[in-house]
């Protein structure tokens, strides 16, 4: 526990996107508060006593905008609203925690989710990567828009997530280690989407954030069957042990789940939405 009191935190609540970007600056010495589902436990248990908190609830960066087959999703959009987004994002959103959490947790928070303990969080990351989504952030050097996988590998430090853009895919697939009504963290999940640049595949639960699995995509593009292509997933990720599952289990389940996601995709291809 740190010695600073919660009272000492300076709370900044910008009322526009521009004000939020200005208040964020380069993000130094600043804690961003979106939905609060990750930050509040840190405050409740005294593990974090921030000096300055930027709360985004009035910053006008929430909501989904559709133009044809393009969607722009604001950082403060609650996970619950993504239950109506294109697949595989919708299925992943529906499997996040429970009704109350989904109503409060946000897209931006999910993209910036650090592991809880050693356990990976951020269930929306894999579907966003599979969809080829691009994220716009602000920070030192101004705004930039980049693929979600690049944002994740650079880490969220120093960047304020503003919105995510994606195109409705021609088809989508999703597979997870299912444990209905036990709202723990996701052990493993695989997502696939047929995009304008081909089939994209990503997995959650095999690292500190979701990972795009290029080797599977390349095998598919080379004509491999979904089952054979799925075996390549272990070239791109090195599963670890954590409190949820062993690396041994994940190594065996990953190709199975990727294969299921690809099978799911092949069943739905050509049926938009």
């Amino acid at each position: 526990m740190t010695s600073r009191s919660l009272d000492a935190a300076q709370l900044v609540t910008p009322t526009s996107r521009e004000d939020a970007i200005e208040a964020f600056g380069d993000g130094a010495e600043l804690t961003v508060l979106a939905g609060g589902t990750i930050l509040m436990p840190e405050l409740n248990y005294g593990r974090l006593r921030p000096a300055r908190v930027l709360a985004l609830w009035n910053a006008g960066v929430a909501g989904i905008r559709r133009e044809g087959s393009s969607l722009t999703i604001g950082a403060m959009t609650p996970v619950a609203e993504l239950e109506a987004a294109p697949e595989p994002l919708a299925t992943a959103a529906r499997s996040v925690a429970d009704r109350e959490i989904r109503a409060q947790a946000t897209l931006g928070g999910n993209l910036c989710a650090t592991p809880g303990g050693e356990i990976p969080r951020g269930d929306l990351q894999a579907p966003l990567i599979a969809l080829g989504a691009r994220v716009t952030t602000a920070g030192a050097g101004g705004q930039r828009t980049e693929p979600v996988e690049d944002f994740l590998s650079n880490g969220p430090g120093g960047r304020l997530v503003l919105e995510v853009e994606l195109e409705e895919p021609a088809g989508a697939g999703h597979a997870t280690v299912g444990r209905p009504h036990s709202h723990g963290f996701t052990i493993l999940a695989a997502c696939a989407a047929e995009t304008s640049e081909g089939v994209r595949v990503a997995v959650t639960g095999a690292g500190s954030h979701a990972v795009r699995v290029h080797s599977v995509e390349q095998a598919l593009a080379g004509g491999a069957s979904p089952e054979d292509a799925a075996e390549n997933v272990l070239k791109d990720v090195q599963p670890r042990d954590d409190a949820l599952a062993s690396a041994w289990y994940r190594q065996r389940m990953l190709p199975v789940l990727v294969g299921r996601a690809l099978h799911d995709l092949s069943q739905k291809e050509g049926t938009r939405g």
Binding site: L33, G35, G36, T37, M40, P41, L43, N44, A55, A97, D98, R99, E100, I101, A103, Q104, H183
Partner: peptide
């Protein structure tokens, strides 16, 4: 946020009061 015992209604919607500043 994991157990549900602190749930209250905020403008009629169920929310975890432990997660709301």
């Amino acid at each position: 946020g994991g157990c549900g015992t602190c749930t209250v209604l905020v403008d009629g919607e169920p929310r975890r009061s432990c997660l709301l500043p």
